[in-house]
Simulated scan of single mutants.
Amino acid sequence: MVFLGCTDEMTFETKTVGVGEDVNLTCPRQKSDYSATLFWIRLVAGNLPEVLGGTFSFHDHNHVNKTPHFTTKQEPGIYLLHINKIQQSDTGLYYCINTEKLNLKFLTGTFLRIKAEPDITKNFQLPPSDPVRPGDSVTLQCSVLFDSEKKTCPGDHSVYWFRAGSDEAHPSFIYAHGNNRDHCKKSPESESTQKCDYFFSKNVSSSDAGTHYCAVATCGEILFGNGTKLEIEGLHLKLGWLF
């Protein structure tokens, strides 16, 4: 996904790519700029600016600045930055700069956003096994499967509960579990898979009618469960799955 913008001097874009992809960024190279030099620099939060490569604008040559991760080289009319197998740590601002005598001009700017792959493989909810009445205590269960080999972003996950009533335009927040995996265990199906069970208990009242959702937030995304629906008929409360 790319969003473009510009000023009188510089073109700016936001580019979203997935972990493991290759990325090419280009900068215009004018042979008429006899005293100009082009540089690719990178700005990453918490780090000093990093020069990835430089070249003369007017002079054609085959010199390539190359590391296992970055390559800068001349191509017809452009100065190319190639990033090999992009990583989450490559998120940042990339600028192509033209320097001529004592003048410095930004030609292009790119904010590179790396879309990480969540490690959640499934989020499902189970209804209580016994029927309950208003005033009784009810426990809702949310089970989440995580694949540790898939995760490509730092940090842990958070689990939230929401309720969507029939008369509400949007779900309302009711509870947060925080970001820990104290109640997780390895799944017998795979060594890399963990199963985490989260429980939400409360005394039921008539205002609890609606659908209760478990939501897991990780890697900048939120995955909702299938939902547990609570319906009140007279003094009785029925619970069921939503699919």
Rank of each mutant, 00 (worst) to 15 (best):
T121D: 05
K185H: 11
V64I: 12
E100Q: 06
L38W: 07
P171D: 08
G5P: 07
S35E: 13
P28C: 06
R133G: 01
G54M: 06
A217R: 12
Q87D: 08
E191G: 11
N24G: 08
K31V: 05
H177Q: 15
Y95V: 01
Q30H: 13
T14Y: 03
T16I: 04
G234E: 07
V144W: 02
S35K: 15
I41N: 06
V216W: 06
K122M: 06
K238E: 05
L38P: 04
F224V: 14
F146S: 01
D208G: 10
I114H: 04
G109S: 03
E21T: 04
L43Q: 13
T218P: 00
T11F: 02
S192Q: 13
S201E: 11
G18K: 09
N226I: 06
K101F: 06
K229Q: 12
E75L: 15
R133S: 02
D90T: 08
L25Q: 07
I97V: 03
K115Q: 06
E117P: 00
F199I: 13
P118N: 15
E231C: 15
I120T: 05
G5L: 03
K202T: 06
T218I: 15
K101W: 05
H69Y: 09
T121Y: 03
N24H: 09
N84Q: 15
F146G: 00
F56C: 11
S192H: 15
D90N: 15
P134A: 00
L48C: 08
G20C: 04
G5R: 07
I97P: 00
F39H: 12
V2H: 13
L140E: 00
C142L: 04
Q141K: 02
C196L: 14
A116Q: 07
T26A: 11
P128Q: 00
D8Y: 07
V159H: 06
T121W: 03
Q30F: 13
T26L: 11
S137Y: 01
H63G: 14
L81C: 08
E13W: 05
F39N: 09
K73A: 14
N24S: 10
K73I: 15
P76C: 05
N179S: 14
Q74V: 15
E75I: 14
N62S: 14
L4N: 15
G225Q: 09
Y95M: 02
N226S: 10
V216C: 15
N103Y: 03
N226K: 08
Q74E: 14
S201T: 14
